[in-house]
Amino acid sequence: MKYSYFPGCSMESTAKSYRLATEYVMGRIGIELIEIKDWNCCGATSGHALNELLGLALPARSLAIAEREEPELDIVTGCASCYARLRHAMHKARTDNASRYNIEKTIEEPYGAKREVYNFLDILTSEAAKTAIRENVTGGLRGLKVACYYGCLNVRPAEVTGAPDRENPQAMDEIVALAGADPVDWAFKTECCGAAHQNDAASVTRPLVWRILKNAQANGAEAVVTACPMCNLNLEMRQDGYTKKTGGKAIPVFSVSELLAVAMGASAGRIALEAHHVPAAKVLASALRRHGEGFAI
């Protein structure tokens, strides 16, 4: 399987371990990601705050390049914000001729919106990918209780994402279970974490993070698994207040790629697990140790 790949800005910096783990996992299960040539920021979230057209043009430029360079390939991204912006541009170009005309005029290039935009969850739940995951995991994460956090933009708005269940989605739970871990039933899978305002309204978005973490822990989760670098960073960086103000216990947060990589035998160093703000290696190591497997931290 081959996809045009839109990494997104966070993958290149703060989401280092997510990037390394994604490269590792995709390599193991035979999915080839071809990075879109000279891609640019998708615009999330300020791009569309003040100028609708710019909010469409920024993602459309990268999509147009992808369709020009690899016309046979669908596009995939590992970031929920990028996914939302890319899909929004695709959806607009498909459903509104005036918008498409304006987009093409702005990016000075035709954009046919012929290829689909997927997120990692979409491509990891294809039958072929699931089979490959099943064949590659060791089963050492059995009993590790995790809360699968999808975030808002991987599922909403429905008309843009086409997600079948926006309240209690199952795709990531399915992948996590295939990796051998134990997804908990919890209620905040698609509650917004407020990552969009982590700079300009930090104090009022903190309660959003805390509520998510609290519900995850109340339902027995030892870690939160994400499918978005922005969510991941936000859920980790805002934990200082969570422990200080609510008395909650710190909880590791890592991406579904990292969980899969560890399940497939990657060492902590291989995927830079130490880069997490909230230590993530320990919980994975103790899960592996329960089944007699070692884990190089």
């Binding site: 891609w39 100028n51 710019l54 005036a98 702005t106 000075e108």
Partner: peptide, 24 residues
């Protein structure tokens, strides 16, 4: 992104066209 000139042109165009926002 290498082509920052292209990006800047795009931003300028978006700002110019946005006064003619799509009607439909």
């Amino acid at each position: 992104t290498k082509n920052t000139a292209g990006i800047n042109r795009m931003i300028a165009r978006a700002e110019k066209f946005s006064s003619m926002r799509p009607a439909g």
